[in-house]
Design a protein around this nucleic acid. Structure first.
Length: 153
DNA sequence: GCCAACGTTGGC
DNA sequence: GCCAACGTTGGC
């Protein structure tokens, strides 16, 4: 069982959007970074738990929990010229980009903010999220970090 | 293979 | 809206 953190801007797609989707499930499209893609494609397994992180909002932080409902499959938005995620270099026979399906688990009682996480930087070790300049939209989380963060709720 | 230009992310 | 960080592109 692996743990993850995935970022999304709530103005575009937030935890409440996932909660109100049919079956409370949605595909996580638009990953266009190779490092993030590789983690998603090669390491994410069905049942893995994921922190839903709200970025570019106020306050930024972890808003809820979801789980991987379907393992990686080709991101069809890469083949759609009308999509903002269209990638003309992706070939349907050899897809460049992948996505997973995520299912809502629960919201946190309140958002655990980035500021609060930073205050616990020592206990959280070198958590990827807290690294300077980290822009990856998918971050691995250790079990220790996962458990510790939930204690902050 | 280098690297300047450019685009994107995401906190503030 | 600003800007630091960083990834990608493309000319050479």
């Amino acid at each position: 069982m692996n743990y993850w953190l995935m970022k999304s801007e709530p103005d575009v797609f937030g935890i409440d959007d996932l909660r109100t989707r049919p079956q409370q499930t949605e595909h996580w499209d638009g990953i266009r970074n190779y490092q993030a893609r590789n983690m998603m494609r090669d390491e994410m397994k069905k049942g893995d738990l994921v922190f839903f992180y709200h970025s570019n909002t106020n306050p930024v932080g972890i808003a809820g929990i979801m789980k991987i409902a379907r393992e990686a499959y080709p991101d069809f938005t890469a083949q759609n010229p009308d999509s903002k995620y269209y990638d003309p270099k992706s070939n349907p026979d050899n897809p460049r980009w992948y996505m997973v399906d995520v299912k809502f688990v629960r919201k946190l009682k309140s958002v655990i903010t980035l500021e609060e996480l930073k205050q616990h930087a020592d206990a959280l070790g070198d958590m990827a999220l807290l690294r300077k300049g980290n822009r990856l939209s998918i971050n691995p989380v250790t079990k220790e970090q996962w458990d510790y963060i939930l204690e902050l709720e």
